[in-house]
């Protein structure tokens, strides 16, 4: 049984336009993915293809006017906005994509400590240990989110997902843009280590090259639909083994490849 299974997911928003005219937008039409234990699934696609919304739909943090269709199963159990509550922060961890996801008025060390188990001294010790593991200085903990550099912020967000010993699935929404090479490798290695310990990882990203270093499979999204789902090894050289046309275009459009020819 797969760890996470998303079948034919759709997300629509009920909106009101000019003159209170009601209309519905459907940014996600039909997404299907599957992640097994210890597997890393890279989710790639252009901006607006529904990658982040998928993560939000799984975590049950869509806005109130969202209408969700299809099904999401965690270890065979159907989950919705209500039942996700018993998993999130425990079995399912979420790494968000920007600094806006940190409380602007709280020192980052205290934000990492929220949800850590144990008494205060244990929590402090655990947080300092996590900071060390991700190459953050002890004094970095005293900073407020707006004082963090891009790379530091990614690493802080990363530490927040490492707090529960029961984690079985990590959903990382764009954890890599804007970070330094060494920090990038650190984050990728960490995801790989997590996966090797039997945790499923969903890596949402723009950066296909980096993702391929660690991913087992790749799911390609376009305009709210899953268009391709293939092993990571299919992405090689000039993409001859990529059968889907959109996937091949996406691969070729990377600056490292025949980008100029594609134009």
């Amino acid at each position: 049984m797969p760890l996470l299974q998303v079948n034919n997911l759709s997300v629509s928003f009920d909106q009101y336009g000019r003159g209170l005219e009601r209309f519905v937008t459907t940014p996600i039409r039909s997404l299907s993915i599957e992640i097994g234990k210890g597997e890393i699934l890279a989710v790639v696609g252009a901006s607006g293809s529904g990658k982040s919304l998928l993560a939000h739909a799984i975590m049950g943090i869509l806005p109130a006017n969202a209408i969700v269709g299809g099904e999401i199963k965690f270890k065979g159990n159907l989950i919705d906005e209500r039942s996700i509550k018993k998993y999130r922060g425990k079995q399912i961890a979420f790494i968000p994509q920007s600094v806006n996801y940190l409380d602007p008025s709280m020192k980052v060390k205290n934000q990492v400590r929220i949800g850590l188990p144990g008494i205060k001294s244990e929590r402090i010790e655990k947080q300092e240990h996590l900071f060390e593991k991700f190459g953050l200085k002890k004094s970095d903990g005293d900073l407020y989110p707006f004082e963090l550099s891009g790379g530091m912020m990614r690493r802080v967000l990363f530490t927040t997902s490492m707090i529960s010993p029961d984690t079985e699935l990590v959903i990382a929404d764009e954890p890599t843009p804007g970070i330094h090479r060494s920090a990038l490798d650190l984050v990728l290695n960490q995801l790989k280590t997590i996966a090797d310990s039997g945790i499923g990882v969903m890596l949402i990203t723009h950066d296909i090259i980096s993702a391929l270093k660690i991913a087992d499979r790749v799911s390609v999204f376009k305009d709210g639909c899953t268009v391709d789902d293939i092993p990571a090894s299919f992405f090689s050289a000039d993409g001859e083994s990529l059968e889907n046309e959109y996937t091949r275009m996406l691969w070729k459009s990377l600056p490292e490849h025949s980008f100029m020819e594609a134009i």
Partner: peptide, 8 residues
């Protein structure tokens, strides 16, 4: 949103 996602 993130706090919710962390189970608060």
């Amino acid at each position: 949103l993130f706090a919710k996602a962390r189970g608060e």
